[in-house]
Structures are given as C-alpha cells and as structure tokens.
Amino acid sequence: MNDKNIMESHMGTTAIKISARDVQVYYGDNHAIKDVSIDIEDKTVTAFIGPSGCGKSTFLRCLNRMNDTIDICKVTGSIRIDDEDIYDRRVDPVQLRAKVGMVFQKPNPFPKSIYDNVAYGPRIHGLAQNKADLDDIVERALRRGAIWNEVKDRLQSPGIGLSGGQQQRLCIARAVATEPEVLLMDEPCSALDPIATAQVEELIDELRQSFSVVIVTHSMQQAARVSQKTAFFHLGNMVEYGETGQIFTTPQDPRTESYITGRIG
C-alpha cells in the first residue's frame, strides 16, 4: 500500500506514539471494528473520519480503554503506546487514562467551580505539592485551553454557567491539566457554533506542540483544517490512512473517494 511510503517519508521528523495491530472490537455479536492496524505519530493531529456508525468513536475509546466501562464490549489485538501494550494484564486503566486524556463530544464539565474542574485531575494524581502549585497548574491548563482570559476573574463560579464553546475549552483545559501525552477528542466541536468551533480548532493546532492529538470528526473540512494525518473508517474497517492532503486530493480507495465527494455518509 501507498501508506507505507508516506509514513516512511514522515518518520524522519516524528516518532510513532501509538501503534495498533489487528484490533477487533465486538459489542456482543456486533463486530464493530474489524482488523484495524494504524500507527499514530507523536506531536501530530490525526483525524478519524467516516460515516456515522462506522466505529470511529469505538476505536478512539480503545486507545484509553474507555471501552472497559461497557460490559458487552470486547477488544482483541494489540495497541501499544510507547511500545507498551496497554491491554497487558498489568496495566491499570486508571493510570493509562492519566496519560491518555480525553475530550468528549458533548461538553461535560463537572457541576463544580471552574477551578475545581481543572484542579480535579491534578489533585487525584497528586501533581501539586501545595495550593500555590495547584493554582499554577490550573492557570497553565486554562491558558493552554485558551480560556484563561475569559474565566480568570470567576474561577469559583460554576463550570456549567459557561457557554457551550467555553465549556468545551474548559474540558480541554481539564484534560491537559493532568499532563497527558496523548489527547483523544471525540467530535469535540459537534455541539458548538462556528465561532466556538474555530476557537477550538485553533487550540487543537497549538496543542499539537505538546501532544499527539487524535480527533474524531464527521466534518471533512475540519479534518482538512486541523489534521496532518487522516484515517478513513467505513463499516468498521479502516479503509485508508495517510497524509491529510493526499487523502482529500488523491484518495486511493473508491470508498474514500465516494465519501469525500459526498456519495456515502
């Protein structure tokens, strides 16, 4: 396949962060992810696109083992982060999730103050020695979430009182506060208006400096705007994976082409 060349051409600048091989996911009898193998690079934004129900979220949730919380969900194959198998029996998913942060489709701040929302992760992971430390962490996270200026005067007011876009940036700040290495985002802009979407997209581009970002989106424009690499999923298969520009201009697979030109989806 052509992917390989592209990947190799990229290897010089970036390292592989996540490497998945032959991943299968079953919800009971429903075979939701079929044979997916993918290498996700560090300090890169990787977009998962595809028609709804094709398994993008399911695969994303495999990467921080959020699927463990679904009783009927079964995952096989191997997923390695920094060459460590995250489905190894010795791995505690809780520790994994501190390393692989997640932002959800619908903004879901805790019904607590803005400060406590961000401080919660660092608190439970013991990242701060004292109050001043914690204040620093919270401020840094909120700045990285590009929301500091809007909330710095009301850190103690409830996170739910913010607008949808602010809430989502708060959730991003909350996710980065625990200093993860990978940031997973499941359609982070689907509940946002265009202006808020633009802000979040800008933010994603900045986050790329420090993290490997994986973003699920059903908007191809968004994928084109924010990502360097794109994977196209269809009916549980990963059909095509490559440089974003190449996927959108010269797709190799007819299914990708149909999707991009709007014939499926």
């Binding site: 501190a98 701040p109 805790f110 992971h125 996710a175």
Partner: peptide, 19 residues
Amino acid sequence: SIRDAALGVGASKMQSVFH
C-alpha cells in the same frame, strides 16, 4: 457523561462514584 468525564481524567471507578 459525568462518569465518563471523571474516568477520562484518570479517576478510578470509586473516585468517580464518590467524588
């Protein structure tokens, strides 16, 4: 979504329930 949020930042099941 509240449980997901807590688990997502690396809280344990029990922490997500009690916090």
